[in-house]
Each structure stands twice: as C-alpha cells, then as structure tokens.
C-alpha cells in the first residue's frame, strides 16, 4: 500500500505523467534515480500502473445503432453557416467604437452638465451664504447692531459687534477674522453685520454662514461669551430687543450673479464630431458583421 505521508502529491503527479511517457528526458532520469532509491515510490508506481491496466481492460462498447445523419434530419434543421473570420473582428470593432462613443459623450457633456448645475446650487445656498464684500464698503455703510438682554442699550450685556465682524451661533471660532478686527463669537451670538471678508488660515476669502437662532436662543447668550471687536464708536444701538439689526430676509437672500464661464471650461469642439464618428463606425461595423454572418 502507498504511504501518503512519504510520497508527496507532486511526486504522484510525476509518477502519473511518467506512466504515460510524458516526462522530459531530464525529469525521467531524475525520477528513475529516485525510484531506484525509494521502495515506497516503486510501490506507488506499481499500484498506479496496475490501476491503469485495469481501466484499459475495459472493452469498448459497440455503438447500439448507427448514428449517421439522414437527409430528413438535416433538412428539418437550419444549419449554421460557416462563420467568416472577419465576423469576430468586426464585432469587436463595433463594440470598441460604441464604448469610445460613450466615453467621448461622457467626457464632453458630463462636465457641461455639472457646470450648468453649479448656479442652481448657488441659488439654493443663497439664503445662508452671502457674497463677500470689502472692508471699505463696510465702514461706509450703516452698521447694524446686535443687542440682546435688557432693554437698556448701554447696559452691560449689550454687545455692539464690529461692523465687519461676523459671529456665529454657538461658536464663531475657527480663526474667522473680520476686516475690522478679529471676530470670535460664542454662545448665542447672532450675526447681524453685513458680511465681512472672512479669511481662513490660508488667507483665502470665505463666506459667512448665517444661521438664524432658535427662538430665545440668542437671548440666553451671556455677554461674556462674545468678544467685542472693532470700534465701538461706529456702532449705533438700534434697539435693545432680543435680535435686532438683522437684515430682512429678502436682502439676505439676494443671490450673487453667476460669473461667466471661463473659456478654458468650454467643451472642446472636436468631441461632438468625434462622438458622431465613433457612433457611425459602431453601426457600420455591426451591420457588416451581421451581413457577413448571414451570408451563406
């Protein structure tokens, strides 16, 4: 009996191939050397040979009948015509041309679609985004005031915010900086000023996001949470109501005019003709393949 722990599966494969005389001369010499040294290997070869001899003893069964085709069998079926060697080439070319056409269309028109969608996004974002303005404009314009807390405008807790300062509800940190000074807000401060040019750490102009406070939220803010910035002399207390000086919604929501697209973003002129050429090629190649296939 064969010892599997001694003979590896690779050796068994080699023995099987050797049995069929399919080893190269080098492999054959090496295996015969191993056979002369290993009794287990010889035993395994013997069992394989015996098993193969058993299989070869099986007699072929005679065909139970004649399988020749009769004319009526042939006439009842539609025989597949010999296929030209060009059919697969043309089919492949057709598919490739169709893929190129789709790729061209996607490359040419998808970015246009994305650009067309961009103004719509800006309009949608307008209620919460204002276009940046310069510091000079801010100093000239009347400056709205935020005040909350008690009815006395001069009372402690009334905070006049820098004319170009923007503070955010529940924060305002993150390095936002107004042109008239640093704007750092926290806790319940409500944005009231015209938008300042807000720069981030990289010095790139940003936007002020105006988030209306929840009812009563701004009132609850404490004065110590807000850092006063800018020149207090420039401020006027409008009222001491809970949230004053906020621009009316119509003003705030005025959308910025979309800028004309730069010429570099225009769709290259050759893309559409290229797509048409690819499409035509795909159709022509497919038709050729079909015609060749049907040709008797």
């Amino acid at each position: 009996m064969m010892n599997k722990s001694i003979i590896s599966s690779r050796q068994l494969i080699t023995l099987s191939v050797y049995l069929d005389g399919q080893l190269t001369s080098t492999q054959k010499v090496r295996l015969e050397q191993q056979l002369s040294e290993s009794a287990e290997l010889r035993q395994a070869l013997h069992e394989l040979r015996r098993m193969r001899n058993v299989l070869r003893q099986l007699k072929q069964k005679p065909a139970p009948r004649n399988f020749m085709l009769k004319p009526d069998m042939v006439s009842s079926m539609q025989r597949a015509a010999p296929v030209s060697r060009w059919v697969p080439v043309l089919s492949f070319g057709s598919v490739a041309a169709a893929i190129l056409m789709i790729f061209t269309l996607v490359a040419g028109f998808l970015p246009m679609g994305m650009r067309a969608a961009q103004p719509a996004l800006e309009y949608a974002a307008a209620p919460v985004i204002e276009a940046p303005v310069t510091a000079e404009e801010d100093t000239a314009a009347p400056l709205p005031i935020i005040s909350w807390g008690s009815g006395d405008a001069a009372a402690p807790g009334v905070v006049a915010m820098g004319g170009i300062m923007a503070t955010g509800k529940g924060g305002g940190g993150g390095g936002a900086e107004g042109a008239g000074g640093s704007g750092v807000g926290s806790g319940g401060a409500v944005i009231s000023a015209p938008p300042a040019v807000i720069t981030n750490d990289m010095g790139v102009p940003g936007f002020v996001i105006l988030i209306p406070p929840a009812p009563g939220e701004g009132v609850q803010a404490e004065s110590r949470d807000v850092q006063k910035t800018g020149q207090e002399d420039n401020f006027t207390v409008i009222d001491s109501g809970p949230i004053l000086g906020l621009r009316i919604t119509e003003e705030v929501q005025k959308p910025a005019e979309p800028e004309p697209e730069p010429a570099s973003k225009q769709t290259p002129a050759f893309l559409l003709p290229a797509a048409i050429i690819f499409g035509a090629a795909a159709i022509l190649l497919a038709l050729s393949a079909i015609l060749l296939k049907r040709k008797p």
Binding site: L12, S16, E47, L48, M51, V54
Partner: peptide, 26 residues
C-alpha cells in the same frame, strides 16, 4: 496532468474496496 493524477489516485482508492471481487488476473 494534475487532475489526471488525482483522478487516478481517487479511482485507485475506490477500486481497492472491490479488489477482491475483481477477476484474479487483476
């Protein structure tokens, strides 16, 4: 080559249980 060798081994293991039932020459 691999499948033939493995098939032969499996066949050999299966036939072993019938070995005594096979004709004497085998």
């Amino acid at each position: 080559k691999s499948r033939l060798a493995r098939g032969r081994i499996k066949l050999q293991e299966c036939l072993r249980q019938f070995w005594e039932l096979l004709p004497a020459k085998f």
